[in-house]
Amino acid sequence: MMNLLRLIGGRTASAPVARERLQILLAHERGLRGQPDLLGVLREEILAVVSRHIMLDPEKVIVRMDRGKQVSTLEVDIEVPNGVERSVAVAAR
């Protein structure tokens, strides 16, 4: 029936596309709803743990999530200032 209509109208019905796009999008958005900002929480906790041992500039702690099809990667980039041995020694005392 739909194919017949397509032949007559010369256009593809767009409603099925709308429906599919919505279903995919909303499944994703509903998953995020009500959840705390995961990356923000991770960043705070990593910063707290590392700061116990090394003096850090909180601005230099970057946490990034990359979503892939099979696996996602979590990248943690922490810039440690020079003279870190001394800070470690101070922290360890």
């Binding site: 209509l5 109208g9 019905a13 767009s14 409603a15 709308a18 429906r19 919505l22 909303l26």
Partner: peptide, 16 residues
Amino acid sequence: RASRGEMLSIDDILEI
């Protein structure tokens, strides 16, 4: 328009 598939149908909306 809905029956021509140009507009989301009632069933589509309710299911979503």
